[in-house]
Design a protein around this nucleic acid. Structure first.
Length: 780
DNA sequence: TTGCCACAAATTTTT
DNA sequence: TTTGTGGCAA
């Protein structure tokens, strides 16, 4: 086999020119653009992937750019896979396979595998995922004798991660605050641990390549930069500083840098994505061609109008006017529910309706803001026998048994990997406890060796009891046996050997519980995935190695594995980005949940990002969109009383239909019967359930229909929604009331009097006694 | 060394 | 509600 990284011959036969009849004008302009920087604003559903794919096809087929000189980067494996597939269809597999299409990490790994020396790594370096990183950081904190209460490993890692995303080293942390010097120390020791283990973390993968390509002296750097004639970046609104500098450096020679994104869909600022980079791009490339794709091909007119209504008020966005030629379709349904159970029941009943009318469950999705909302939905789905799958949440590769087996494999592959050794040294239990491990770490530190190398000396050192000594030696023998076997076994066989010889399989088999059963199944699934890897590499005539498999697995996430099975997909709104469905249920549209408000008041919530998130959610739907909100919701062990989300008020009235679930309708009907006027000092009349007070004025301006005349401060009643106790000003037990600072709560008791003292339970507080004049009745 | 119980905390997540 | 963690006894 020749060097897999070598350039293929320059004379690869290009495909037939297949350039665009079926693109609209701006799409064609973007796809047909050849030289120089290009910035494409691609609205939701505007055919973004299509444009990238056509652009690449055009470069190859018409402009004869050799495929291996084109680099296209994405954020997820899934997006990369999709792009590869479409390119294969358009250009033929033979040509497409030479294109460099992949995630930032995959592309950089490919380069690092070739240029590892320039990055100061050894050939078989490994990648540490976040669990591994935490293990390392725990060790660091301990080694520096720090209080892990004052310096929680996760937070320290967070700071380091943030620094690395801006390509900053330890010295940059030093002056940040009074704990800066400590952070710097942690950072340095952390990096040393990684280096000693011949490991990189996710950030390092990109940083290492960045250092190489930004170094004008570096030969490999010049090689990489000279290699690509065209660089394309998908989801440009999500890039961080490192990624931007990376693509800038790689494309510096030709300036053929094409970036595609939608600032309205920037929902990952909290993890380092920097929307300012879009503006930076215009500054860095003042001659850039700018194309805006504003025609939406995905959704009905009502959905597009709704989406535009939500995103229009966003500040600081690139002006774009999303529009569509599609028919109006059904109005967007906004459904008021009593509580989360009522909400789930409603959603499931509408799903069943749709399925009975012939819609495939795979065309239906349920979105929520946070995972904690999924449980109730799941329960009802199960009870009603609706097939579903949850995307995200506890991931396959995060499961303990999977990580255990992978750790075994990684130690076998790379004995220096201390983190992996520590993970499995006592799994299954070998009577090697914390004390023994402590000794082992000391021995390793003293000798400057890896833990694996320290196993022998530690056992011989005499500081251990005989039981512990034997246990350590047996563990060393186990690893050595496995390593010997590894040289002539296939990866899947090595995995089998690990499970057998380590006693891991036996441990699970002995356990009668259903969890143990699931774990065994998961392990079998992992072995299955190794087999699949072997087959794939065999088909590509590449060697299949343990290192090869491990690398792929670390760079892979199972968010990429939305199954094609006919099941309703359930996921967070974040997980929904990039997907589309015929029918979408967007649940939990309540204040404090969506937009989400952290209980931690220190964290200033980013209202704008929440708005963009809502925009992403509604633009996923092609034909039908249901939005639900509940008056109360039991979450995090506490009942919260919520107002409808302010975003709902931004949907144009004409594209919306209001609904109330049967359960809530029955309830409010009953309330209307029973309530009459009384004490209290309410001036407000009930508000439409979905109206948020702050959003109200704005929405009536925008909504088209003129707002009814009313006195300042007075709320008006939405005519098509019957609700609440119809105009009485009294407060009763069980009423929902709103307080300026405490939010919405429920009334526990009311004292008599003109301005009665009311006891109210607000979520997150113990019940409070408050004068009625400070309260206002809240809508459902 | 292990196992149990009490207690706190609680978005969003790719690679 | 769930999940993880820390302390303490066997």
């Amino acid at each position: 086999m020749s060097d897999p990284y070598a350039f293929p011959p320059d004379d690869a036969e290009p495909a037939q020119p297949s350039f665009p009849d079926e693109l609209n004008e701006p799409q064609a302009a973007a796809a047909g653009h050849v030289d120089g920087p290009l910035l494409i604003f691609a609205g939701a559903g505007s055919g973004k992937t299509r444009v990238i794919v056509y652009r690449i096809a055009n470069l190859v087929a018409v402009h004869r750019v050799p495929p291996y000189r084109i680099l296209a980067v994405t954020f997820t494996n899934k997006a990369a896979g999709e792009m590869k597939k479409r390119l294969g269809d358009l250009l033929g597999e033979e040509v497409a396979k030479d294109l460099w299409v992949g995630t930032f990490h995959a592309v950089c790994m490919r380069l690092l595998r070739k240029y590892y020396e320039a990055a100061g790594l050894e050939r078989n370096f490994v990648i540490y995922d976040d669990g591994d990183q935490r293990t390392v950081m725990n060790r660091v904190i301990k080694a520096l004798d720090l209080d892990d209460k004052r310096f929680p490993p996760r937070q320290v890692l967070g700071r380091i991660h943030a620094a690395k995303q801006e390509a900053k080293g330890p010295e940059h942390l030093e002056h940040e605050s009074f704990i800066g010097p400590v952070l710097k120390q942690c950072f340095e020791l952390y990096q040393k641990h990684l280096k000693d283990a011949n490991a990189v973390d996710f950030d390092d993968i990109l940083l290492a390549v960045l250092r190489i390509v930004e170094d004008p002296e570096s030969l490999p750097g010049r090689e990489i930069c000279g290699r690509f004639r065209h660089v394309l970046v998908d989801e440009f609104q999500d890039v961080n500083q490192v990624q931007y500098r990376l693509v800038k450096a790689i494309s510096a020679a030709t300036r053929n840098l094409c970036v595609v994104g939608d600032d309205d869909q920037s929902i990952y600022r909290w993890r380092g994505a920097d929307v300012r980079i879009v503006r930076g791009f215009r500054r860095d490339f003042p001659d850039a061609t700018i194309v805006k794709l504003e025609q939406n091909y995905r959704s009905t007119n009502n959905i597009v109008k709704g989406a535009l209504g939500i995103i229009k008020p966003a500040q600081d966005r690139e002006p774009k006017e999303l529009w569509t030629d599609n028919h109006d379709g059904d109005p967007v349904a906004i459904v008021a529910c009593d509580n989360e159970h009522d909400e789930a029941a409603f959603v499931v009943s509408r799903i069943k309706d749709a399925v009975s009318r012939g819609l495939s469950p795979r065309e239906i999705a349920v979105f929520y803001r946070i995972h904690a909302q999924s449980r109730v939905l799941e329960e009802v789905m199960r009870a009603e026998r609706v097939p579903y799958q949850i995307i995200g949440g506890m991931r396959f590769f995060e499961r303990a048994e999977i990580k255990d087996l992978l750790s075994y494999l990684r130690v076998v592959d790379n004995p220096k990997s201390d983190v992996d050794l520590l993970r499995v040294i006592n799994v299954p239990s070998r009577k090697i406890g914390d004390t023994t491990i402590e000794r082992l770490v000391q021995t390793a530190d003293a000798g400057g060796t890896s833990l694996f190398e320290a196993l022998g000396p530690c056992a011989e050192g005499g500081s251990l009891g005989s039981a512990a000594r034997n246990a350590v030696l047996r563990f060393r023998d186990l690893l050595q046996t496995l390593m010997r076997g590894a040289t002539d076994l296939r990866p899947a066989e090595i995995a089998e050997a690990v499970l057998e010889k380590s006693g891991y399989a036996k441990m699970l088999e002995a356990d009668e519980s259903t969890e143990a059963e699931t774990r065994l199944q998961n392990l079998r699934e992992l072995v299955g995935s190794i087999l699949a890897y072997e087959e794939e590499t065999a088909a590509a005539a590449e060697p299949s190695t343990l290192s090869g498999y491990l690398e792929r697995v670390t760079l892979q996430s199972d968010a990429d594995t939305l199954e094609d099975a006919p099941r309703v997909a359930m996921m967070t709104v974040h997980g929904a980005k990039g997907l589309e469905f015929d029918t979408v249920f967007l649940t939990g549209m309540e204040e404090d949940l969506f937009p989400f408000r952290s209980q931690d008041p220190k964290r200033g919530e980013d209202q704008e990002e929440e708005r963009r998130l809502a925009y992403v959610a509604v633009t996923r739907a092609r034909r039908r969109l249901w939005i639900t909100h509940a008056g109360r919701r039991y979450i995090f062990g506490d009942t919260r009383y919520g107002l409808a989300s302010r975003f709902l008020a931004d949907l144009p009235r004409a594209s919306v239909r209001q609904e109330v679930t049967p359960a809530l309708a029955a309830l409010s009907g009953a309330r209307r019967e029973s309530s009459s006027s009384g004490g209290g000092s309410f001036s407000s009349r009930p508000r439409a359930p979905w109206q948020h007070p702050q959003a109200q004025a704005a929405s009536s301006m925008r909504g088209g229909a003129p707002a009814p005349a009313r006195a300042p401060g007075e709320r008006y009643v939405e005519r098509d929604v019957e609700h609440d106790s119809g105009g009485s000003g009294s407060i009763h037990e069980g009423d929902r009331v709103e307080h300026k600072t405490l939010g919405v709560g429920v009334v526990l008791s009311v004292a008599a009097g003109a301005d009665p003292t009311v006891t109210v339970k607000f979520s997150g507080y113990t019940p409070k006694a408050i004068k009625a004049s400070f309260l206002r009745r809240a809508g459902r």
